[in-house]
Amino acid sequence: MIDLDELDRKLLFALAKDATQSAGALGRRFGLSQPATWRRIKRLQDAGIIKGHRLRLDAEALGFGVTVFLGVKLARKGHISLDDFERAVSAIPEVQTVEHVLGLYDYRLRVVARDLPDFERVLRRRIMTLPGAGDVEANVLLSEERLPGPLGVSLGD
């Protein structure tokens, strides 16, 4: 782990808000040259603090109006391999994230669908037929806000 100074924290917070900002623009904003800013960003990447850049798509604008969080408990009969379940569920295009969790359920999935009948089709024909799929609990997303995230709050502390 590397020590982060105040400029590193400011850069991380700025990039977390908008990763498309150039090193030159960030440098001007924080009083650094473009090469110095780029070196800091590269150091943060090399240290594994910055793991990559993601493109966030608007699912609703793409025709996917329903997002459902599924808790999935694996059936104990046959002792299915976690790797087999993860590989099979990851191949379903409507499944956006697969998280192995501790608690009542073994996995938490984020699933998008065009509408509720489409979600029911995905659930019945794809998810419930997976090897080892047992009990499921569905929570339909009503609204979502994008907050700065836990690091945005704690970086200044």
Rank of each mutant, 00 (worst) to 15 (best):
S81M: 06
S90M: 06
V112D: 09
R110S: 13
E99H: 12
E99N: 13
L102Y: 15
E99G: 05
V95A: 03
R114D: 05
P117V: 06
S90F: 04
P117W: 08
Y105D: 10
G78D: 09
H79F: 12
V111Q: 00
V101S: 05
Y105A: 10
L109W: 02
I80S: 09
Y105S: 11
R87A: 14
A113Q: 00
R114N: 03
R87H: 10
L102I: 11
Y107Q: 02
Q96H: 12
D118G: 10
Y105L: 07
R87M: 09
F119K: 04
R108S: 10
L109M: 04
S81P: 06
R110F: 05
V111G: 01
R114S: 05
I80T: 14
R114E: 13
I92Y: 01
I92C: 04
G78Y: 11
R114F: 02
G78K: 07
D83F: 11
V111S: 05
D83E: 14
V112P: 01
H100F: 14
D83R: 15
G103R: 07
V101W: 05
L104M: 11
R114V: 12
P93G: 00
D115S: 14
P117Q: 05
V101F: 08
D83N: 11
A91N: 12
D83W: 06
H79L: 15
G78W: 07
L102D: 13
V111D: 04
D115T: 11
E86K: 12
R108T: 12
D84V: 13
H79M: 13
L82S: 11
L104A: 11
A91P: 06
F119R: 00
Y105F: 15
Q96G: 10
D83G: 07
H79A: 14
D83P: 03
F119D: 00
V89A: 02
V112Q: 14
V89L: 03
L116R: 09
Y107G: 01
V98I: 03
V112L: 10
V111M: 02
L116W: 13
E94P: 04
G78A: 08
V101N: 08
